[in-house]
Design a protein around this nucleic acid. Structure first.
Lengths: 211, 211
DNA sequence: ATGATAACTAACCGGTTAGTTAAACCGTTT
DNA sequence: AAACGGTTTAACTAACCGGTTAGTTATCAT
């Protein structure tokens, strides 16, 4: 019994286009502000096609959440090699989070809104991901403490510090660009997390925990 | 949905009740997810009363934003006295932000959602507030650098670090409590920013910038 | 070709929601 | 006590929006 070929799609995969459009609209307007018709319009697809392939608005949102903040632990922890010194592991952890956020510009707004609503739509995998990341961070810190190069601190607070700094920096870009009265120096900061910003945050975090 | 008693005391506080209810609903559900009828129900007021006193949903939201994140600079910078050493000023700045967030539990979700949507509803005063805060922070840092106790860094990034850490910590409380798989140690952290957490963040930030 | 099936669409449906209206309410003034 | 005006309300409406349906088109196996 060979698997059924799903490649029956004619003009490009509708499901992929729907998910892309949905990710964009949800990240811009939030769940409540999103209109299914708008997603259909941007995907170039009839609204009924969304219901045919995926399901209702809620299901669609769940899929978007899963694709955007599901299985992030894998990506973030992939680079942390066992034979590195803790300081290097720490740098890798920070840089991996930066890469994840930069490769996924839709992630910051979605994550922030989800957090604001108490993670009402977080799939189970998110909990496990957080657990894995905190676990690894705890190991790195412990190893550093044992080797006398890190101070002892609360891993979760440090994690919130890294994630929070980066997401707030990233998400504040449109505000920085738009608002009057903002100092010129601030306006000139890059929208994305470029090497200068990344290096600065990495430096500050490492200084915070280094002996 | 339990019925809300009319609480027909004095009529003057209708506006206050409306604003309180609106702040709650907007912070829980976001702009798109908020129903004006729900605000009216919680305020114990007929919907038309909202339109009579304040105006439409958009105007009401604007008022909420203004009351929640308008004129925060005053509160945050009030304690920073000119005759303190820069390290003390820095501590005051951090503690003031913590107090502001803790005294307004609705602030974190609203702020995060606003940031997620590019600050579409930020009133002009927010820009000026940010400018004032960044300005003062820049002064504190410069003074510290001059006295040889702080390293040179980008004030805005540091500000994002403080705000981001605190807001993420605060906003993640419901998620921490709810999700499975989250380490027990993390679950036991207090929902609010208590003295232990505040002290830890203050310590980390000061370590990050101290020579 | 032909029938079966998957993919897609235009048009529609009914509950919901922001916003309106006209009348009622009530303390104050005359 | 009647007129008055700011305030509140029940009832209403028009538009919106998530979801459905009936029907069409494309693809494939035989």
């Amino acid at each position: 019994m060979e698997p059924v070929l799903p490649s029956r799609g004619r003009k490009g995969d509708a499901v992929a286009r729907i998910l892309t459009a949905a990710t964009a609209v949800f990240s811009e307007a939030g769940f409540g502000g999103t209109r299914v018709d708008e997603i259909a319009r941007r995907a170039g697809v009839n609204k009924a096609t969304i219901y045919y392939h995926i399901g209702g608005k809620e299901t669609l949102y769940g899929e978007v959440i899963r694709s955007v903040i599901g299985n992030v632990a894998e990506k973030i922890l992939a680079g942390v090699k066992e034979d590195q010194p803790p300081e290097e592991k720490m740098k890798t952890y920070i840089r991996s989070i930066i890469m994840t956020i930069e490769n996924n510009p839709r992630m910051a707004p979605i994550m922030m809104r989800e957090l604001a609503s108490g993670g009402a739509h977080f799939p189970p995998v998110v909990g496990r991901d957080i657990a894995r990341i905190i676990g690894t961070l705890t190991d790195i810190l412990e190893e550093g403490v044992k080797k006398g190069i890190f101070i002892s601190t609360v891993p979760f607070i440090l994690h919130m510090m890294v994630i929070g700094s980066l997401m707030f920096y990233r998400a504040s870009a449109p505000v920085r660009a738009k608002l009057e009265w903002i100092p010129e120096v601030v306006k000139q900061l890059s929208a994305g997390i470029n090497e200068e910003v990344a290096g600065e945050i990495e430096k500050l975090i490492l200084r915070a925990i280094s002996r």
